[in-house]
Design a protein around this nucleic acid. Structure first.
Lengths: 213, 213, 213, 213
DNA sequence: GATGAATGAGCTTTCATTCAT
DNA sequence: GATGAATGAAAGCTCATTCAT
């Protein structure tokens, strides 16, 4: 009967960092990095300020942990699926865009890139991380799909490095919209429809003459 | 003490607020809102901290002035030109996208929306302003072009409120790229080419069957 | 869980306070009182912070224990030997100064008075202890030797309470030098030679005309 | 009539750092470095915490300024006088020791070395400064006097680097006594008499056979 | 109008101490 | 007896803001 007690404690200790990160995410999302006080995070996590410093060296480190943990996984999964995929580039592109779209519509995490963007002047290191880990990888996946589609004669010969950005741009806009303007909209803006329209227009725009007919 | 001093003061007096705003823009762009100190702005403007408070009530007010003054004019100009335009929606859309594109590639002002996004939680009022003054107006212009194109049989019947966002999304991405990641790129990323590719793909995607051929 | 653990615990139990004090001495010597963290002591003693509080009420109490235990014994021994001594005051003084000198050159303990001096404002009680237990006793020993020497016609009639301080001053200086400046010296300063010079000059200075010849 | 106002203000601005240093000296003397709070200094100086940071970068910098400003001057003056002196080494040595002695008996500044000693672990830089600027210079002066005396046949051939330390050791002890134990003494300890006894004993100890007679 | 010395609230961070396990 | 997670009271430092000059 004493096992459970120890177990609960241990579980708590291991759960703490995650609890803190979750609280931090919520507060960062609401106030941005600079305006967030360690006290805010602590209260939300149900601990005191000091406890945060048991697990993280500084406010900046809390933020970095949040960013690092958040995005890499999903992206890697998508990259793997893409690499394994056999079939039309068109169908694959649709699948990937919808997957990312769903993520953007549902995850709380999408506020983080916003903060990185905004306070980029204060986090050069984090900007590098984003640029070369997240974005490079993401654009790489899309570029490879596009290149495959061009090679297979499905797509027109558009420059892939630009086209890849065209693929994500509306998704990014959707994410920014949701996290910034959505609460103000008199009636909720339908991001899913935005993405479907994007897919429709984009694929037509990429298609070889008569390819989509 | 003597006349000349007073005269010089007077001459400067009217220019002061604008000088301060320009200095503030530079510093905000570099550091974000929270990390910008009034002292930074003052030094850059060649005045002392106290002087700023002669013209602005607070740091927040400096920022708001900057935002308010910045974008409205250009947008109104574009809206006017669009309203007066007669000719193909296609050509008009190209013109408008290139105009905005040029702006994004050259203006210092584009950092401001980034900051507004980032600190939206701290500036709800400013977010409203952006949402209903700037974005509403901008999307309105694009929506009207698209609607005209659809009505004239140039474009397919895509939902204009979504398509309008598709038009600006790559421009937004370009702006964010320039202000955030450009310094890190080993070779400069060609935003102009991005915009031209965007125009190419977008117009094909919008075009009625055989319309662009 | 099993017997051996308990046994080991018990064995350690009595040694713990001393282990902690030894660790504390090392850290206090290195960092001074205020800059020493309980964690530092704990780590060095191979226990956890909490354990220290099983044996000592506070950081201050750890320090006090250290001081109290440290010097009294040696001094008492010296005092006893002096009281029992029969022979020339001159030879006795040399013996005592060399004994203290050796102590200062070898013991880690000499940092403690330094800390007491430094933080005297924060430890009035400890200053009293030093003043009336350690110093009083030490000066008493020296004063008695000097008085005996004067009475026996070995020394000139110098005021003993001042001369006693003259006897220890160079030893004190040697201790401070070792614990403060020694690491910076390009070549090690020879404290033993200092003490021998001191003995030489001092005894000549004290000697009755023609006494030392 | 407006001149005085400006003048008073300006004088105030120029006086501030000195006022702060004086307050800091008092508090450091009372509590040591680590236990001194910036607030303590501020209150004593009649300003607020923030004001201190207008003139000094950090608490450490306040302390360093205090040390730097304090001792160098006096020492340089003494060194100059010694270099210019012509006459017996014996008389010169007496003059110098009395000069330093007077300083130690009257100046508030003598607590500073105590603090440097005590917190040497935390101020390696300051220890270097003391070691190579103050002590080196001080010992240099004394060594040169002693060497001159030996060359002129006034003093015995004692090793000057050790003998120089013997000259200052009782002065140092006097300073430590005054700043640490004096308040506890039932009747005030007569430091002047200590110094005179020191001069007496020392010079006899150094004197060539029959030299002092 | 302009200055800049002064303010003081508020922040991040540290660490002696406690106590459930 | 021992642990170590958690606490919370400071403390150093920053900076938007004020106001006497």
């Amino acid at each position: 009967m004493d096992q459970p007690l120890t177990a609960r404690w241990k579980r708590r200790k291991e759960a703490r960092p995650q609890e803190i990160l979750e609280a931090a995410l919520a507060v960062f999302a609401e106030k941005g990095f600079a305006a967030t006080r360690m006290d805010d995070i602590a209260v939300r996590a149900g601990v005191t300020k000091g406890t945060i410093y048991l697990y993280f060296d500084s406010k900046e480190e809390v933020f970095k942990s949040l960013v690092r943990q958040t995005i890499g996984d999903t992206l890697t999964q998508i990259a793997d699926r893409v690499a394994a995929y056999e079939g039309s580039a068109r169908a694959l592109l649709i699948t990937v865009l919808r997957a990312i779209g769903t993520l953007l519509r549902t995850s709380d995490r999408v506020v983080l890139p916003k903060i990185v963007l905004a306070e980029s002047g204060n986090f050069p290191e984090l900007v590098r991380f984003y640029r070369f880990e997240i974005i490079e990888k993401g654009l790489g996946v899309l570029t490879s799909i596009l290149a495959r589609g061009i090679a297979q004669g499905e797509f027109r010969a558009v420059p892939p490095q630009h086209a890849a950005r065209l693929c994500v741009a509306p998704l990014l806009l959707g994410a920014l919209w949701r996290t910034t303007f959505a609460p103000l909209d008199p009636e909720p803006y339908d991001i899913e429809a935005l993405i479907e329209t994007h897919i429709d227009v984009l694929l037509r725009g990429l298609a070889k003459e008569g390819g989509e007919a």
